[in-house]
Design a protein around this nucleic acid. Structure first.
Lengths: 154, 154
DNA sequence: TTGGTTGCAAAATGTTTGCATGACC
DNA sequence: GGTCATGCAAACATTTTGCAACCAA
């Protein structure tokens, strides 16, 4: 199906990254696979339709997708993020290094930002927020991508 | 009702800040007032209930709140932000200087951050995103506030 | 075997829309 | 007076939940 190149096979990835305490079911593995093969964060609807189209013979319930995403999130292998440009939540596998995106306000393309701009100023942040224990953050950059910028100027 | 101290009266504020092209109605002025007197971003539901409780004799429709918030947003005097910790959108009057918040994951308190951490590194951002026209950004800091930190350690 | 997971349907939630009435400029 | 805003209800989209059947450990 996918011709993306990964360091090791999907089975190995599953073997290696499956969180303990989470029962391994067909549906969960399939949700994981969809997230694994995606390059951008996906909505529950996108995951559901990817599941349904990948294997027409199998059945999946929408609620199962949500429940499994929640299970993954609790287990710490999935991040749920809510962007201002979308009216639904997006999910992605948690990477070793967390990611930020530049979101195009016109076509909603999400361009990953290589480095985390906050990393360099985290000490300033801590200073600015005494008595607050920072555990994480979310950052979105808004604007217009190359293509849409063209459209705008016409 | 409110005993907050402002530089000038509400009427003067309205007079000064009302966007042109937006018809001034009782409902819109009241929505504006609620936002103006709030110190944190409010949800549509919070605004609606503030309206309803402030003046029991007047009627307000939920849809009017949404429509007016949208009108304000289009007029550029209100910012809508969607946080990962909330399951609904929050609205606030756009300040001269934009704001960021540290959000407590436990009690959802939003602590304003005085300075924008991104301001200092914006040139790096621009360099990291060629061909992308940055028009804005949203930043949330997650963690635990002073009070909830205590609760956690017990 | 047994407790967690699934599918289905229904409910809950937040938000948007259609339409007739009403209010602002 | 004409246009736009409002209230109401109904539609809508996303997400959650109740429950019986089912499956992985």
């Amino acid at each position: 199906m996918s011709n993306k190149i990964h360091a090791c096979s999907f089975d190995e990835v599953i073997e290696k990254n499956w969180p303990q305490g989470v029962k391994k079911t067909r549906q969960r593995v399939d949700v994981y696979r969809v997230l694994y093969e995606a390059r951008t964060p996906l909505s529950a609807a996108e995951i559901y339709s990817a599941l349904s189209s990948n294997s027409a013979k199998e059945t999946y319930a929408f609620s199962t997708v949500y429940r499994n995403l929640l299970a993954f999130e609790k287990a710490g292998i999935v991040v749920k993020n809510v962007l201002s440009t979308e009216d639904n939540a997006l999910y992605e596998l948690k990477q070793g290094t967390h990611k930020h995106y530049a979101v195009c306000l016109m076509c909603h393309t999400k361009i990953p930002i290589k480095t985390c701009p906050l990393h360099e100023i985290s000490h300033d942040l801590v200073k600015a927020l005494p008595d607050f224990e920072v555990t994480g953050h979310q950052l979105e950059i808004y604007g217009y991508c190359k293509e849409c910028k063209k459209t705008l100027s016409h």
